[in-house]
Write a protein that binds this DNA or RNA. Sequence first.
RNA 1: GCGCCCGUAGCUCAACGGAUAGAGCAGCCGGUUUCUACCCGGCUGGUUGGGGGUUCGAGUCCCUCCGGGCGCACCA
Length: 555
Amino acid sequence: MTPDQLAAAIRHAVVTSIAEGDLALEPAQVPDEVAVERPRNPDHGDYATNIALQLAKAAGTNPRAVAELVATRLRDVRGIAAVDIAGPGFLNITLDAATLGEVARSVVVAGETYGQIDRYAGTKVNVEFISANPTGPLHLGHTRWAAVGDAIARVLEAAGAEADREFYINDRGLQMDKFGQSLEARALGTEPPEGGYQGEYVTDLAQVVVASDPGILELTGDARWEAFREAGYALQLQQQKEVLDAFNTHFDVWYSERTLHSSGAVERGMAKLREQGHMFEADGATWLRTTDFDDDRDRVLLRSNGELTYFASDTAYYLDKRARGFDVCIYLLGADHHGYVNRLRAVAACAGDDPDVNIEVLIGQLVKMVKGGEEVRLSKRAGNMITLEDLVDEVGVDAARYSLIRYPVDSPLVLDLDLLVSRSNENPVYYVQYAHARIASVLRNAAELGIDWRATEADLALLTHDRETALLGLIGELPRVVGTAAELREPHRIARYLEELANGYHKFYDLCRVLPMADAELEPINISRLWLCAAARQTLANGLAMLGVTAPDRM
RNA sequence: GCGCCCGUAGCUCAACGGAUAGAGCAGCCGGUUUCUACCCGGCUGGUUGGGGGUUCGAGUCCCUCCGGGCGCACCA
């Protein structure tokens, strides 16, 4: 019996109580999904529900009385071994061993699909993240989004959504020109212009550009720095793509801001907004009245000098995504862009969309790095920065991704480089991966002993040890963790869950011998435990896949 | 001044409004005759920044104060 099935059984017991006149409630007052959780304290059974506490007031009685009514009916449900009422009115439910043990079989049978749910079936989601200028390497802030954004997409896919990862290339405007001028300057051996790019990589890049096209130096005037800009753009974009690919983050769409303009998407967007009646002219400029929808000031789309603002691009881009059929547009932005949240939501509202449904802006706080007890300052302009590649070189893709995903993004993150570099078990990714490798090893050994557990009838009711039931309970949680992680857009919940699961396995392994000792006969419990091992391995592997982290068979 | 985010153990951080606030690291003490010790168990460590409120129940929601980060362009 899965937790969801149990929740349904509880709900049925409540509805039956109402139907039979024992509970003075309307069926509509019963929540669609009854909350079922695993109690922290094992003495409180396999599962607990607070349904009696929630309904007591509306039913005009006390929680324990409601609990009693529900408990009586639950005790008749096949698979439920015991129902206790505890504390203010919690229902503590214990499943019988065979019923709980079946979790192992169902996980093994489901294989790679275990953990997938259909909550977002039919929903098309666009997840946009990083969206850096193609003017330099990706830094640590980008790296956080690379890991988290991709994990959000993976989790949404596991929850049934069709999720596209999208990278918006900021390839238009002043920054690009400064980039071209900086490259030109370095190629000529002079200093970049005011506000230009100072990083050492600019000099290297300039050399690469000249080496591949020596004729570029023959150009004169604006044509020269524009040529540098275009050549540098192509190289940097290619480099970003390669780096992200190696980082196991694969974008479905690389969307160029220039394309947005050349394709007519901007005109279409402006027309749509004009149609909706939220545009106006003032001081020679064209504005969008975002203050109609919670923004603190109106925003200029078309400047009085005839140039489109960056905001115009943002607006057109959102509308283009919607036109491409995405139901939900998720943006991951850095904390320094939190001022954009209201204006982006207002754009959706101005376009006639529901900002609470169609657009979602996630704000991530900054990543700080500490090394040798001192903060490492990141500055693209100064060139003294830590790049995605630096981090990967130091700790590897798996550890980098995992460390960045395992924390919620709305609080600032301080990574201690020394700890990350130390490759000790202080890094939880090793702990989780090790659990997977350990199981893989046991399964290998079983095969060498000639034990074909899959082909052997397993009595899963034998899994009654505390560590076994605890592990089974943990394994059964994955689908619900996926649901929560997807709904809240919080992939760190998967990571935390995997750490708990790994811990549950190590504890089991410590006290429960899986394979027969050298001189012992193969017993039924060995087979049952192999099924449990296989289920735990599958669950770890599936969870790690949702984070884009590998599940090694050997370490 | 206005707005957003944050404040939890010595450090880094968890905790869909649920039961005794948990992990890792740091410190101390133990554990495996056999499947991976990158493991397991125990101890020490907290007025969840302060104060009010909402309710069966608040780290979580509301108000307020304190402290920290970030943002408030016809820049990109």
